[in-house]
Amino acid sequence: MTSTNLDYEQAGELKIGQVGIANLRVRTLDVAQLSREMRERVERAPKLFGRAPVIVDFGGLAQMPDVATAKALLDGLRGAGVLPVGLSYGSRETEQLAEKLGLPLLAKFRAQYEPVAAAAPPPAPARRESVTAAEAAPAKAPSKAPPAAIAGSPGLVQKTPVRSGQQLYAENRDLTVLTTVGAGAEVIADGSIHIYGTLRGRALAGAQGNTDARIFCREFHAELVAIAGHYKVLDDVPKELRGKAVQIWLERGPDKQDQLMFAAQ
């Protein structure tokens, strides 16, 4: 098994948030290393990351990069196989850099996801920014804590299979799928996710940053699982867990970083 746990040795920390969009928080401004790490991610999971939109977040750096360096990074990421679509909002300097690069400013993670079947899409906040898994906020406003699940609110129960191309979201509650989640399908919950069948698609629990959320499934073949933005793709998971009943949760490691943990049930 190849170890791919993110730690402070890596130049960039990738988290999953808005559906199909990832947030790359730059820890070390090393264009070559960041491009190499992204290329390795694309090679490991081409269906997930190949030509995937990515938001670049320079908020973890002591100093904003100059335009030439930022352009070199964007070119390196494109060469690695992903598509930078914007910068994560942070400061006035970030806004100025985004203008010079011709990119929009976006929040790290979006406020909510669209349900699979809704009568109408939810209204957009007045200054809403799009977006990826976990750590979200609106433009030019202080970051807000993830909303707590409504006390006593019932979980969302999906009785029919979630098929390829579908997306199911349980806002401020748990999600229970009584059947299967097919390859190419995506289930998302602000709380925990319970799947009483096979998980072949993607499952994102704790979508608003709830680190206590968990994922349970009867038969594990997931393309990707994430809790509060911390994710793993199938190739990162021990092979002996494939096809088994699995529980997934976050645990604080000795480096004081949350890590995804897996256990057979």
Rank of each mutant, 00 (worst) to 15 (best):
D30G: 10
A264G: 11
I227A: 12
E171L: 14
T28N: 08
Q265T: 14
A134G: 13
A22R: 01
D57S: 02
R36N: 14
F58S: 12
R110T: 02
P53Q: 06
A126Y: 08
L61A: 11
A141K: 15
M1H: 10
R214T: 15
P146G: 15
D190L: 15
A148L: 10
V26W: 01
T198M: 13
R110M: 00
K15I: 01
Q112A: 03
E186W: 07
V56N: 06
V131G: 07
V56K: 04
F220D: 06
P46S: 06
N172A: 08
P147Y: 11
D7M: 09
A137R: 12
R41K: 14
I21Y: 11
A120W: 01
V54F: 11
K144V: 02
Q33I: 02
Y113N: 10
I188M: 06
A137E: 14
I248H: 13
L156P: 04
G197V: 04
G90Q: 05
P254G: 00
A119W: 02
G182I: 04
G50T: 13
Y113R: 12
Q265H: 13
K159C: 01
R25L: 12
E43Q: 15
P146L: 15
E13K: 14
D236V: 05
V187M: 10
L250K: 10
Y196F: 13
N23P: 09
A124M: 01
G12S: 09
E37Y: 03
A126Q: 08
A134F: 06
F58Y: 01
V162C: 11
R44W: 00
K159V: 01
P138E: 12
